[in-house]
């Protein structure tokens, strides 16, 4: 019988083909591979070994590395805070005046100031400024008594706050200093304006003649407390037209404004005077001194 290639093979032929050497070999190899994988986990081991070999080149991602990164960020943030604090401490160590201290400490920065350092900075101030900063008797008690545990400085916009702190971290006295107040040189300020443009003097502006008449009626020893810094006024050219008294006191001082006129230009020179001397002067100006 002639068989064409497309005729289906017989059963014998089919069995022969099915159990051919190639097929059997393939089957055995496949079974061995599968069985050995189940027995020896070689695929897992192979993959594991391959992955170990690529470990170093792979990215540090995933929650465990994130945790590490959080820790790095945390240390970075803490270091920043510590560096800021250390800088503040250095500022305090190197400051030669309250003004440089005030300018060196940014808002929110703080450092402890030891008593000797405070004493040094305090004594570098002109006498009048010292008294404005803190009453000497109080300072003696704060620095030489037993209450103050330490002095804490904190920067703020345009100045510093100085706290005298007891052992319970309680503020027992505080000083709020603008950096201009903290200057070593006596403070005077000039403003190209008239007294009328400075609202703090409103209602308390006097002709210069009237003002100085009242000044000379004060007891002799009181006048230096009123105008302690004649230099600031003497150095101005022009004539004093009017004098104003500021409507608020600060640390026991009140600002006086002297309005100078020179070649038609107005300028106000402000100096600070003792509150109680100004109060006495005010009585004279109001005619109530009797």
């Amino acid at each position: 019988m002639i068989r064409n290639w497309y005729d289906s093979p017989g059963a014998g032929e089919s069995a022969k083909r099915l159990f051919s050497l190639l097929n059997l070999s393939l089957m055995v190899v496949t079974l061995v591979v599968v069985a050995s994988e189940f027995r020896f986990d070689w695929v897992e081991k192979l993959a594991g070994r391959y992955l170990i070999s690529t470990n170093e080149s792979r990215p540090e991602t995933g929650s465990i590395w994130e945790t590490g990164r959080h820790a790095v960020n945390a240390h970075h943030s803490l270091d920043q805070i510590i560096i800021k604090n250390e800088t503040a401490r250095q500022t305090v160590r190197e400051a030669d005046s309250f003004q440089s201290l005030a300018r060196g400490l940014g808002a929110g920065e703080w450092a402890n100031l030891d008593k000797d350092r405070f004493r040094q900075l305090y004594l570098s101030l002109p006498r009048i400024r010292r008294n404005a900063l803190i009453e000497p008797a109080r300072l003696v008690w704060l620095l030489n008594g037993t209450l103050t545990d330490r002095i804490f400085c904190e920067g703020r916009m345009g100045g510093i706050k100085i706290y005298f702190i007891d052992s319970g971290n309680r503020v027992i006295h505080s000083i709020d200093l603008d950096d201009t107040d903290a200057a070593k040189s006596p403070e005077t300020s000039q403003t190209a304006a008239t007294l009328d443009t400075l609202p703090g003097f409103s209602g308390r502006i006097y002709p210069a003649g009237l003002f100085f008449d009242a000044v000379f009626k004060l007891p002799q020893d009181m006048v230096p407390d009123l105008i302690s810094d004649a230099q600031a006024l003497l150095s101005r050219t022009g004539t004093i037209q009017r004098v104003g008294i500021w409507n608020a006191s600060e640390n026991g001082f009140i600002t006086l404004g002297f309005e100078f006129v020179h070649l038609g230009e107005h300028e106000v020179v402000q100096i600070r005077a003792r509150e109680w001397a100004v109060w006495q002067l005010g009585l004279i100006l109001k005619g109530e001194d009797q």
Partner: peptide, 17 residues
């Protein structure tokens, strides 16, 4: 595997925070 995370060595690093 290129995108797989790197493994710390040793594994005990997980407790270092």
């Amino acid at each position: 595997s290129r995108d797989l995370p790197k493994l710390p060595s040793p594994l005990s690093r997980i407790i270092e925070t």
